[in-house]
Amino acid sequence: MTAPHLENTYVKLSLLDLSNYKHLQDIAKEKDLIFYSPSDISTPEALKEYVQTAVDGYYNKTTIPFIIYDKTKQAYAGSTRFGFINWKNKLLHIGWTWIGKEFHGSGLNKQMKFLMLQYAFEVLKFDKVEFRIDERNSRSRKAVEKIGATLEGVLRKDTLMQDGFKRSTCCYGILKEEWAEIKRTVFEGF
């Protein structure tokens, strides 16, 4: 599997691996950056383990992890991933997304999501993209709703968090037959 290189005027998504993850060490230390995630990136060791898990998934063809570079600010901003890639059923998840607080509200996330959705639907020719979000994470839920994802249901108390809390997960989706309209109405001219 060849890693895609996704890029536009604003953002560049390159394969995240053990050769470049150190660009994210300072961002990963930000307080509560991934509060709603069951993962831990708070120490250099935890971040390396997080990246190693992503790399392992890449070699098993179940994930494609990206390091995010904000071309406007000329700085590394965080990480995102295609995950739970199901090649047979043409379904994947977009998630594991975290960007430094200085990049919040900048439009960077929307730029990344456009590139990822475009790749999933137009290059991979997948039938569906899903997003799984902690039901308490209203910011992320609103963000995927703004890009046209539909709430399909809630998995109740399905994920154990770092602090022992059992979260419920909102499942959102976009179907390939919805993509053209979403691309035209949400992403055109942004």
Rank of each mutant, 00 (worst) to 15 (best):
G153P: 14
K125R: 12
K88W: 15
C170R: 00
A180L: 15
R156M: 11
K125I: 05
E135D: 10
E177T: 11
T62A: 14
V123K: 10
T72N: 14
T53R: 13
A143Y: 04
T80C: 15
C170L: 04
G173H: 14
D56L: 15
G100M: 00
S168K: 07
T169M: 08
V129K: 01
C171Y: 11
G164C: 15
S79Y: 03
L91I: 10
D163C: 12
T159S: 14
R167C: 12
F126P: 00
T159M: 14
K183N: 09
I67A: 01
R156P: 14
Q74Y: 11
C171S: 09
Y172H: 02
K176M: 09
I182Y: 11
R184L: 14
G78R: 00
G148N: 09
A54V: 10
E130I: 10
R167Q: 05
P65E: 02
L91H: 07
E177C: 13
I94H: 03
I64T: 02
I64S: 00
L155N: 11
E135Y: 11
R81E: 03
Q162I: 12
L92M: 11
G83T: 07
L155V: 07
F84S: 08
H104F: 12
K101I: 06
K166E: 08
I133M: 08
Y69G: 00
T150A: 09
N137H: 06
F165V: 12
E178G: 10
K183A: 09
D56S: 12
W179P: 04
G148E: 02
